[in-house]
Design a protein around this nucleic acid. Sequence first.
DNA 1: AACCGCTTGTGAACGTAAGAACAAAGTCGA
DNA 2: TCGACTTTGTTCTTACGTTCACAAGCGGTT
Lengths: 224, 224
Amino acid sequence: MSERRPGEIPEATVARLAVYLRVLTGLVDASTVIVSSEELAAIAGVNSAKLRKDLSYLGSIGTRGVGYDVTLLREKIASSLGLTQRRTCVLVGVGNLGHALAGYPGFSSRGFTFVGYFDVDPGRVGDPIADSKISDISELESVVEANGVSIGVIATPAEAAQTVCDRLVDAGVTSILNFAPSVLAVPDNVDVRKVDLAAELQILSFHEHRKSRGPGDGLVESVG
Amino acid sequence: MSERRPGEIPEATVARLAVYLRVLTGLVDASTVIVSSEELAAIAGVNSAKLRKDLSYLGSIGTRGVGYDVTLLREKIASSLGLTQRRTCVLVGVGNLGHALAGYPGFSSRGFTFVGYFDVDPGRVGDPIADSKISDISELESVVEANGVSIGVIATPAEAAQTVCDRLVDAGVTSILNFAPSVLAVPDNVDVRKVDLAAELQILSFHEHRKSRGPGDGLVESVG
DNA sequence: AACCGCTTGTGAACGTAAGAACAAAGTCGA
DNA sequence: TCGACTTTGTTCTTACGTTCACAAGCGGTT
């Protein structure tokens, strides 16, 4: 039992592959040719055994006694993540955060092309954004369908997120990155990842709280 | 074995508590008084057994046969996350993303007070930002120490992140939220959470790739 | 060609998390 | 006051993820 089909990569591993990819790109830029799992793991901030196991899901890439060919490994990871083809995306909700995302250099440099930026606010429509212009939300479906967009990024207020999500899914989008603080309901074939900024701070707050109580005593506070 | 000390809440649970908290705040606004684990789980998008187990770490809060008192539960979660006291934060790196974060309403409304916004660029210093002004990075330490800042948010380019991180830690910050695409090295007593925007898209890309190959065949691509 | 040292790839042990199922404990109605 | 009904809190099972430890395999050296 628990035989993993070839090509089946665990979720936790996928998330780390993206990190390894970034680190490897840095190594390529530094003209590094070979890297050992120990070195790579140290840079990526993980255990070297974990790194080797992660990479083993992609096949036998390294050379025993030597290490990994940096360029080859980077290509293997990129191909596993499906980054050999550019992917088209749309962004919905162009407030502060939406603007920041549109200007984020990491997206286009990593193979993601934004083919549309949408907002409901007529006052914003037509405004320039990242060498393009903000479009009215009514054009969402036609742009998605015309460009075969597979990824939608939602940066609207929480109230609008589910409606936008439904429209994206109906238009054919099968992956969604959600920055709105709300839980999205989607069909099974659609993947959602959420980035919850306030939640991140709250999680840190929890750890601060725990530290300030001192580790080891759990029942300090009187609830009365 | 594996007895968990009272007050020891699993990481996975902590992350979800923040979600429950947000949902509960919505219910309070809607004047809901009582909610069952089934209802709450549905809204939060989780399994109801998981939700009950999560809440059980906070003690026995619900009433069998009835459900949970919405207000009480919200207070319990807030207190567990250490949100009963306001926490002071600083933001370093005021580019596009930094501005968006500074303007994000979810932070101050949830008990986080930003007492400083810093940047290295002299051209930006003094610019207004979120009813405050951008300060020069040289003032970082004094502001952190004067305000007992516990949380630092890094929104600088990748190259600057580790240096900024070191300075924050030296000044006494014990929790860091990192938006820069880089791995931060910190002492054991410091918590780091990272938000890697490009990685999020890459993870979605992986799932798109997997879907397009069709589920079930793992060895389609010829490697030669 | 045979050996030695190094690093990978992996099997097995451990720990954490998720989900099903049920006993405990409360409310409400008669 | 008693019993039926509802929903929590928890136990147990299964799955997933991490880490250790080492055999397998490769390059360099003699």
